[in-house]
Amino acid sequence: MQPRRDGAPETRKTMLADFDLVIPANLTQALQILSEDATRNGHDAMPLAGGTNLLVDIRARRAAPKRLIALGKLDELRGTTIDNGRVIVGGRTTLTDVLRAPRMAEHAPSLVQSARVFGGQMVRNSATVAGNLCYGSPAADTVPPLLSLNAELTLASQAGRRVVPLNDFFLGYKQNVRRHDELVTEITWPLPPSNSANLFYKLARRKGDAITVVGLAVTLVVESGKCSCVRIALGAVAPVIKRALAAEAMLIDQALTPTLIDAAAGQAVEACEPIDDARASAEYRCHGVYVLTRRLLTQAWERLS
């Protein structure tokens, strides 16, 4: 008879299960190792970026990779630059790097707001933006801002590279289009025009180091008194973080009024498929989406008009 294990308390996880660790010296090596793994080893290797999610999962036995490819030496992927009208964040850039990057508060106000309240200092010093995207938690703090900024990811493998809009990146709960032999080398988005506003709000059960209950980001561009671009990104209210497309459609080419904003906020709630958990009920999450959509749209509109 097999011993019973279902639902056993997670108390036995004092040590990490066995795995092998490879530390490539550069991107080329890293991609080569991932490529070999993909062809020979049956996808049992996982890239290790900051480790602030993956190592927790391994300890809790929610993940059991045979091999980790540590990306710590890939300094060529670390840092932020502006090129050709786009902000470029390297695939190894940490949250702290984002906070320290000059003028990032202008280039991505929502991302900076989310990075400030991302975990605690030590986690921000280790965790990478790309890692936060790839882990794909529905509560990931950097995803709503980057979705609202219309970010794109560059995925590189030995076979080449491709650019994927963040909007198309996620396939389902903790699932995305990254192949096992690929790494995120860049995250980019267009420099926001001066007639734009970009806001983020994290609703959580406490102010410091908390898991998000609702994370909401809004980008608004106003031209000639009307919204020429609206992006509303909803975090922690569905299996994947996504845009409230129907709500956005209601606002495009419109001058915003309280009534319209209210209607759009109601529409944003329609996009939610939240769960009940110990942090909040589904009902409250929907309420949060309504309130925050209304609030951020109002603030953005007021700032621009």
Binding site: G7, P9, E10, V117, G120, R205, R206, K207, G208, D209, A210, I211, A278, R279
Partner: peptide, 25 residues
Amino acid sequence: EEMCYQEGRLITLSLSEYLIPTAMD
């Protein structure tokens, strides 16, 4: 702060789910 039990089973089993005040709070 709340230790949440479902049918006696503890579901707030870590310091990221059981929320004591931080320096921000």
